[in-house]
Design a protein around this nucleic acid. Structure first.
Lengths: 182, 182
DNA sequence: CATCGCATGTAATAGGTTACATGATTAT
DNA sequence: ATAATCATGTAACCTATTACATGCGATG
């Protein structure tokens, strides 16, 4: 059920084709919020169009169809966002790994945590650079673009995760013979 | 594929029954890392047992079967955790809502962001209390328990998300007539 | 004229959710 | 006795992934 709102929402930002949307899901959207591929996107777009929540705005070369949300689509998105029964459904392999690593022997746990710290730092560097690029060429309308919003989210999450890993490392070492700080 | 490692990992922490595991998934594990229910857990436990990755440690009243990981199971878990091809598969309805809310009119976006800030603060209060309870009665073995680890993670994530929402609010208001600070 | 990227799809399989189902034990 | 909670399962349906498939248009 969430996929359709993801599509509706992205089309509410700006009209796009299935191909464009596929690319979006390969970026921040897929990384932090909702992962999917073109094999789910195309059938769902057809369904949304049938139901009148989106419509073809333009047909281009190679059978390209650019969709935009209809007023009904916008209403559906809005009511989904304001609707109370929030399902907090989460499925995140990275976090699962994080949690489970401490089921290993302390030595292994510490090794994994250190690897994670390195990865996290690399990710933060990448995002910091991406953000400074985005801020160097702000959009004309002054509106916060989706990518900027998502990059900021990613940056803050990675930082928090890094600090958590550091904390976890401190609380794992006491049990171990190798007691050098991280 | 991840569900089986979630189960294997939880059993590596401590032996448990399908019922116990179901409860675990209703807590922090399901909230931050991987959601599932008893209808997936029982069949998967049977499969894991067939494959020799877990075994029945104890049978109790009402058909209760307590499982524990076998050495092969521990090896499988360890190799999954150390294995390189990390799929960063994420599916998080909350984050999706966060990202999509800015596709609405600025007034609606601001209203949702403010609601989110309130929810986030409530969540942080709850976790802070839960953590101080956990820290008041630390486990005898000095090992960091799963719940403590997960609560700390949740706390830090909620805090980072809150700060992000505050940031987003600041960057959304410029476009709006109602320019009072959050 | 070949290769790469654009652009859309279907089919088979796997994984997940909801509804249905049953029975044992404990607490009131 | 009755209700609540413990404890496990199956079946139907829905959602998601992987493999397969096709053709157009631009670039070299």
């Amino acid at each position: 059920m969430s996929l359709r709102y993801a599509l509706l929402g992205m089309l509410a930002y700006a009209p796009a084709s299935g191909y464009d949307l596929t690319k979006s899901f390969e970026g921040e959207l897929g990384t932090y919020a909702w992962q999917t591929g073109h094999t789910r996107i195309y059938p769902e777009l057809n369904k949304l169009a049938e139901e009148g929540l989106i419509e073809v705005a333009d047909e281009g070369a190679r059978g390209r169809r650019t969709y935009r949300v209809t007023p009904q689509g916008r209403t559906a998105l809005r009511s989904w966002l304001f609707e109370e029964p929030q399902d907090h459904s989460v499925r995140n392999v990275g976090v699962l790994r994080l949690f489970l690593m401490s089921a290993l022997e302390p030595g292994d746990t510490r090794r994994l945590l250190r690897a994670m710290l390195a990865e996290g730092r690399a990710e933060i560097d990448k995002l910091t650079e991406a953000i400074s690029d985005l801020d160097a060429s702000p959009p004309a309308d002054g509106r916060l673009p989706f990518g900027r919003l998502a990059a900021e989210y990613g940056l803050r999450m990675h930082q928090a995760r890094l600090e958590w890993a550091q904390w976890a490392l401190e609380h794992t070492e006491s049990d171990d013979k190798d007691d050098s700080p991280a």
